[in-house]
């Protein structure tokens, strides 16, 4: 039986009915058409589906949509503003930290959470801060450079 849930996504309030077995990732992608959040494994191994839930980055493929009832969710679509793209997104573009781009939304959400909590992360903290986000294209080097360029 479907359940009505209320949640805030990128500062917009949503009320929607979901089956209990629907994941947050599928709710975002297929019901709400927020397809910026990607799925690369569906089992919490790749991090492509990373969203920030109540301040912490999580694998949205391992969160039930019903569990997100009452939550604050941030997705990659919420970062850009009327003023343009977010500085993190800009740094990823400028430093060449994006190749195929499939891990990028998740990688950027982990980066946002990392920098929200620690504006001046060390190299090790940067590595740890994206350790759940697999990238097969870049070898991470330019991703590190992009994040390093954002240190305060």
């Amino acid at each position: 039986m479907k359940k009505i849930i209320n949640l805030t996504i990128n500062q917009l309030a949503y009320e929607t009915a979901v089956e209990p077995n629907k994941t947050l990732a599928d709710l975002l992608r297929y019901d709400l058409k927020l397809t910026g959040t990607k799925k690369g494994c569906d089992t919490g191994d790749c991090g492509a589906c990373t969203v920030i839930m109540n301040g912490d980055p999580v694998n949205s493929c391992l969160v039930l949509a019903v569990q997100a009832n009452g939550s604050q969710i941030e997705t990659v679509e919420g970062l850009s503003t009327d003023e343009g793209i977010h500085p993190i997104q800009n740094a990823f573009v400028e430093k060449g930290a994006i190749q195929c781009g499939y891990c990028t939304p998740g990688m950027i959400m982990s980066t946002k959470s990392l920098l929200d909590k620690n504006s001046n992360p060390s190299e090790q903290e940067i590595r740890e801060g994206i350790s759940g986000n697999l990238c097969r294209c870049t070898g991470y080097t330019k991703i590190f450079e992009a994040i390093e360029s954002l240190r305060s």
């Binding site: 912490d56 980055p57 999580v58 694998n59 391992l62 740890e128 801060g129 350790s131 759940g132 986000n133």
Partner: peptide
């Protein structure tokens, strides 16, 4: 345990 994402859950 796991990754930074897993550890949040």
């Amino acid at each position: 345990l796991g990754t930074h994402l897993i550890r949040n859950r």
